[in-house]
Design a protein around this nucleic acid. Structure first.
Lengths: 138, 138
DNA sequence: GTGGCTGCAAAATGTTTGCACGGAT
DNA sequence: ATCCGTGCAAACATTTTGCAGCCAC
C-alpha cells in the first residue's frame, strides 16, 4: 500500500493545520479549492479519511453533523456547541485505564479506547439568545 | 403545545421499550410497521425526536451511523462496536460535576453536560476476525 | 369543527463509490 | 510503463420538510 505524494494531499494536510480549529471536510475543501480550483470534494474526503487512518490527523465524529478533523494528535477532549456545532479543545487528565477496566468488567467488548465529550452553548450562541430574549408582558 | 395521543405514538414508544436494546429509527420502523402497515418512516422519525426532546426516551447519536434510542432514562454510558456499530450499556459513576468544572475553567461555553463513550469490538466481531485470521507462511 | 398529526414524496445533508483518465513513481 | 490517485457524477444512508387530508380532541 504505497502512498503517492500528490499536490492535493500536501495542500489538504496544510489546510487542516492552517485552519487549526477542527475544520469539517467542507471547510477544508473551501480552503483548498482556492489553491487548486479543480480539486473535487471526493478527493478531500478520501484524503482526510486516509490521513485519519494513518494517524496523521484525528477525526472527530459528530452525531447529526459533519465530521471534524483535528491536527492536534495529543490525547485531549472536546466540547461541542449544542446549537451551532462549534468545537473546541478541552485538556484534562482522565483515569482512562481505570475507566476502561470498569467498562471491561461489564461487557464482553475488546475495549480500544474512550472519549469524553462535553456539550454546551458557545459564547456566540449565548449572545444570540440573549438578544432574542424579549421581556414578558403580563 | 398540546400532545395528541395517537396510535402511532403509543406503538412507537412501546416498540422502543420492547426492543429494549438501543434500536435505530429504522429498527423501530420495522417493528412498528408490522402492527401499523401504513405507518410512514417520517412519523417514526418525528415521534422519536419529539419523545427524546420531552425526555421520554434518550437519543444516542452515533457519528457516521444512525442514531439509536434508549428507553433507559437513568444516567449511564455506552460502548460502541467500532466495526458493526452495536451498542451496549456501561454503568459507572463519574465525577461529572468535577469534570464539568475543569472543562468550564477552560472554555467560555455554558456547559450543559458530558458524555463518555467507549469504543471496542463486540464479541461477534471478535469472533468474525478470528475466523479470518490465516496463518502466515514465511 | 379545528388544527395537530399523518403519509407521501421530494429535498437536504454528508459521505462513498464506479469509472475513465492523467500523473507520480 | 505501471497503477495509484484524481475528477466527475451518481449512488448512498439518514433525516427533514412541504403539503393535502385525516382524526383526536
Amino acid at each position: 500500500m504505497e502512498t503517492r505524494n500528490t499536490i492535493q494531499k500536501q495542500t489538504i494536510l496544510q489546510a487542516v493545520k492552517q485552519l487549526a480549529n477542527h475544520p469539517t471536510a467542507e471547510q477544508v475543501y473551501e480552503q483548498v479549492v482556492q489553491r487548486l480550483p479543480n480539486i473535487s470534494r471526493a478527493t478531500v474526503y478520501r484524503n482526510l479519511s486516509s490521513m485519519a487512518e494513518r494517524g496523521m490527523l484525528r477525526r472527530i465524529g459528530v452525531p447529526g453533523g459533519a465530521d471534524h478533523y483535528d491536527h492536534t494528535l495529543e490525547d485531549h477532549h472536546h466540547i461541542l456547541c449544542s446549537e451551532c456545532g462549534a468545537l473546541e479543545d478541552i485538556w484534562m487528565e482522565l483515569p482512562t485505564q481505570h475507566l476502561q477496566q470498569v467498562a471491561q468488567s461489564q461487557s464482553q467488548f475488546a475495549i480500544e479506547g474512550c472519549q469524553l465529550v462535553f456539550y454546551g452553548r458557545c459564547p456566540a450562541c449565548q449572545t444570540k439568545s440573549e438578544d432574542a430574549e424579549i421581556p414578558h408582558l403580563h
